Computed example of a mutant assay.
Amino acid sequence: MHKVKIMGTGKYIPEHKVDSAELDQVLQLPRGWAEKKSGVKTRYYAKGEHASSMGAKAALQALSDASLELDEIDAIVCASGTMEQPIPCTASLIHQKLAPSRPIPAFDINSTCLSFVTAFDIVCK
């Protein structure tokens, strides 16, 4: 097993905020129902954004946090329970948006809520 270290993290949160009370109203549910059932008070909705554009923004933030340049990484792995489209994979769409100066292998790991754990296990081997 290789030694793997998380050197930086990044995130992207869409601007459109939806709280549970708004969701209750839209779905014609009793006030407080969505929060009580899910435990989630606030969600964020991506209007006109795709997984790859949000992933590229998060990747750039992670690279900055790690003090790395895009061309210093070995692979782009998109770990998600949902995909933007079947073909090409989301990781290759992220690769396209990042526009590295050299080809970087890119692939998806789609294993529901366990995608990050699965992807991390795979890159450790």
Rank of each mutant, 00 (worst) to 15 (best):
M1K: 14
V4A: 15
I6L: 11
I6C: 14
M7L: 15
M7H: 02
T9R: 13
T9N: 09
T9Y: 13
G10F: 10
G10H: 03
K11T: 11
K11Y: 14
Y12C: 06
I13V: 15
P14A: 05
E15D: 15
K17S: 04
D19N: 14
S20Y: 01
D24K: 02
L27W: 07
L27Y: 08
Q28V: 06
Q28K: 12
Q28S: 08
P30S: 13
W33I: 02
W33S: 10
W33H: 08
A34F: 02
K36P: 00
G39R: 12
T42K: 01
T42C: 01
T42L: 00
R43W: 00
R43H: 04
Y45P: 00
Y45T: 03
A46F: 05
G48W: 07
S53Y: 13
G55V: 08
G55D: 11
A56L: 10
K57F: 10
K57H: 07
A59L: 01
L60P: 03
L63W: 11
D65T: 07
A66W: 12
L68E: 03
E72M: 01
D74M: 08
A75Y: 07
C78K: 04
T82Q: 07
M83W: 01
E84M: 05
Q85Y: 13
Q85I: 11
I87G: 01
P88L: 10
T90N: 13
A91R: 02
L93A: 10
L93Y: 10
Q96A: 13
Q96T: 10
L98P: 02
A99P: 01
P100C: 09
P100Q: 09
I104A: 04
P105G: 08
P105A: 14
F107A: 08
I109F: 09
N110T: 04
N110Y: 12
C113G: 15
C113W: 15
C113Q: 14
S115H: 12
F116N: 03
T118C: 06
T118L: 01
F120Y: 13
D121M: 08
C124Y: 00
K125M: 05
